[in-house]
């Protein structure tokens, strides 16, 4: 073990792999020094595990109805109680984590790369390219997210896939702005000049030299935005425009529980609680990552 750490923390790595492993290890070490980030990480890891092993964890089927046991309060049989169709809420929350995770990951996977590429191109070339691209970005930015998503879902029809597309379409402009701002700070840096002088094409410079520097702030931003994405998805679900019944989507579950909120509080509260915990988890993790990945901190030992 001590040999391993020594190898990782070596000041003179002997291969590319070791250099990057060493850097990752150092980041890991500083992440460990941040209790909030670790809390966030644990929540996110639990979410992932829950999604992966949902059938093993959930005691009941998420859609199996049991009308004899409707609206039971939390008990040893039903940890979070049951809903109006007698479904076990805990099982639904567990299966719901799959949907949440899918929404979050798909939105991030669609919008972050689009934003990143548009922002980097815009910032790197400047001039009219910048004006046109940022004009389009601004148009998207100027519209309220949820309303835009609503409009898209209304046009595309309700459903979880369309909700994901709608959220992704509203999410990328913010990333484009960040990537552009980040690119502007170093487009005139000497290391970019140096690579130009070596005959690299603009595409190569953007992909190999500009994008890697934007990614860390992007990862931070996306992580922080995950909470917002979850909430937007839940909002769409709540309005009946996201996941359709009987899918155990957390927002839709709250929506169903609204009718019983005064007498059977757990029906709406349990999925709401799940949303809060997971959102907080992503926020904590994002904050922690910001401290570690911020390029301005790099080099300060």
């Amino acid at each position: 073990m001590s040999n391993m750490t020594e190898w990782l923390l070596s000041d003179s790595p002997t291969s590319k792999g070791q250099a990057f492993a060493g850097r990752t290890w150092r980041m890991w070490l500083s992440l460990l020094g941040n209790p909030l980030a670790i809390t966030g990480l644990i929540i996110v890891v639990v979410l992932v595990l829950m999604a992966a092993f949902a059938p093993l964890i959930a005691p009941y089927s998420p859609i199996g109805q049991d009308l004899e046991n409707r609206l039971l309060p939390p008990s040893w049989q039903h940890w979070m109680g049951t809903d109006e169709l007698g479904r076990d809420i805990f099982s639904r929350v567990v299966y719901g984590s799959r949907l949440t995770l899918m929404i979050v990951l798909l939105v991030a996977a669609i919008s972050a790369p689009i934003g990143l590429v548009i922002g980097a191109i815009s910032g790197y070339f400047g001039g009219w390219v910048d004006k046109v691209m940022m004009g389009i970005t601004d148009i998207f930015l100027s519209m309220p997210k949820l309303i835009m998503a609503l409009a898209f879902v209304a046009a595309l029809g309700p459903g979880i896939e369309n909700a994901i597309i709608a959220i992704a379409i509203t999410a990328w402009p913010a990333y484009a702005r960040i990537a552009r701002a980040e690119t502007l700070t170093f487009r005139n840096a000497e290391f970019i000049d140096a690579i130009k002088l070596q005959g690299a094409s603009p595409a190569r410079i953007i992909i190999n030299h500009v994008l890697p520097l934007c990614t860390s702030s992007m990862i931070v931003r996306v992580t922080l935005d995950m909470a917002g994405i979850i909430l937007t998805a839940a909002g769409l679900g709540f309005l009946g425009l996201g996941a359709q019944p009987p899918l155990p989507e957390w927002g839709a579950m709250i929506s169903r529980g609204r009718a019983f909120i005064l007498d059977q509080w757990w029906v709406a509260t349990m999925p709401g609680f799940a949303i809060i915990v997971v959102s907080l988890g992503f926020c904590f993790l994002g904050d922690g990552l910001r401290d570690i990945l911020d390029p301005k901190n790099e080099g300060k030992s």
């Binding site: 250099a19 290391f191 140096a194 002088l197 390029p295 080099g299």
Partner: peptide, 16 residues
């Protein structure tokens, strides 16, 4: 080829 003034700014911070 060119060598720049600022050794802190002329190397890509994320590349070995």
């Amino acid at each position: 080829q060119m060598v720049f003034q600022d050794p802190y700014g002329s190397l890509h911070p994320r590349k070995t």
